[in-house]
Amino acid sequence: MSEANDQIVDFTQEGRVIVGTIRTSSVLSAINVAEFGNEVVAYVEARPGVNLLLNFEHVDYLSSAVLTELLRVNKAIESVQGKLRLCSLSKVILEVFQITNLDTMFTIFDEDLDGGRRRFQRALEIQDQEAAWKEPG
């Protein structure tokens, strides 16, 4: 179910994964890039343990200012013991992450949204199974 009408990111819950779809490249312009970060950080901080999959399928390019905001989001996610994954990155966007070595900091799924969501969901299930094994019997 979608929660927003005129936000920069459209958040949708699908199972245990929250998909955050960035609406267009233009919402990440210099004018509102900080707003993007504020919006996602506020969302994350209100949801401890959130599993957020940021979907870039409508984004053609992103600037270094967006990378800075993504680092803020990553810190916010860590502070609430959540998980952040990225998917549907274009070739240029992936290149930007690689040039800046941020591909080592963020977990980037190669897949499109459906594939990324399935992979994230499956990783969470495996994590739960492992935790169950470790629980004292």
Partner: peptide
């Protein structure tokens, strides 16, 4: 070239690339 966790300073690196 910025450290991985540094918040800014990547613009010129991207232009150079």
């Amino acid at each position: 070239f910025p450290e991985t966790e540094q918040m800014g300073g990547r613009g010129i690196c991207l232009i150079r690339h």
